[in-house]
Simulated assay, not measured.
Amino acid sequence: MSLDMSNGRKPDHPVTPMFPSRWSPRSFTDREMSVAEVMSLLEAARWAPSASNHQPWRLVWARRGEAGFAAIADTLTGNNPLWAGKAAVLFAVASKDTVTNREGAEVPNRTAGFDTGAAWMSLALQAQEMGLFAHAMAGFDKDRLAAAVDLPEGHTLQCVVAAGEQGPAEALPDHLREREKPSGRKPVGEISVRGRF
């Protein structure tokens, strides 16, 4: 079960508690995730909304200790290598950039990244429901990760996700320990306007 029982976030308007309780910690325990647990996360991603039902998201995953995990972890940049290798599972999340139109031609899918973002959120909320956490990262070397997962042509890497059981902040280096808390959010009035911009 998560160490984070109440993260102190207070919504300004009524929402289901899963939204403010979801956040992205960096500390993970050494608890392994079963293949069945990983399948539950992937099943949640599967049911994400998708424009015209194209479902462009593609996920490559591996559990800690597997060669695929090490290959993905080796492409991380910035502070990510300091903590992400302790996660139970790493996912490389990509989107298929094209769709087949009614005439049978491959054309750009302008909502591929948008839809893939919905799949990531579905995975993250499922992790939360299971007492686990998921942390998406943009800090990775795209060329090296593409090679590591044998990314097909016509696909775009969107993020790497670390998932597992939350660990104690004390397990992190000092400069990351200070950041190991849920971040705030801009008020609704700053992210939305009624009628027009």
Rank of each mutant, 00 (worst) to 15 (best):
M1F: 04
S2C: 03
L3G: 15
D4Q: 11
R9V: 13
K10C: 08
D12K: 06
P14C: 10
V15K: 00
P17H: 10
M18E: 15
F19K: 02
S21Y: 10
S21I: 10
R22Q: 06
S24Q: 14
S27K: 01
T29A: 08
E32A: 14
E32G: 02
E32V: 11
S34Y: 04
V35Q: 00
E37Y: 01
L41F: 08
L42C: 14
E43Y: 01
A44K: 00
A44N: 01
A45K: 01
A48R: 13
S50A: 03
S50D: 03
A51Q: 06
H54S: 08
P56M: 05
A62Y: 04
R63L: 02
R63E: 02
R64Q: 13
R64W: 03
E66Y: 13
G68E: 05
A70R: 05
T77K: 04
P81W: 09
L82S: 09
A84V: 07
K86R: 15
A87P: 02
L90E: 01
S95D: 06
K96N: 05
V99E: 06
N101F: 10
E103N: 14
E106D: 06
V107H: 12
P108Q: 12
R110C: 07
R110V: 13
T111L: 11
D115Q: 10
T116W: 07
W120R: 06
A124I: 10
L125R: 15
Q128N: 15
E129I: 05
M130R: 06
G131M: 05
A134G: 13
D143R: 09
L145Y: 09
A146F: 11
A148L: 07
V149T: 12
D150F: 07
E153Q: 15
T156R: 14
T156Q: 12
T156I: 11
Q158E: 07
C159H: 10
C159Y: 02
V161T: 13
V161W: 10
G164H: 03
E170L: 04
P173F: 14
E180K: 02
E180R: 00
E180T: 00
S183I: 08
G184N: 02
G184S: 15
R185V: 03
R185H: 10
K186A: 10
P187F: 09
V188G: 01
S192M: 08
R194F: 15
F197P: 03
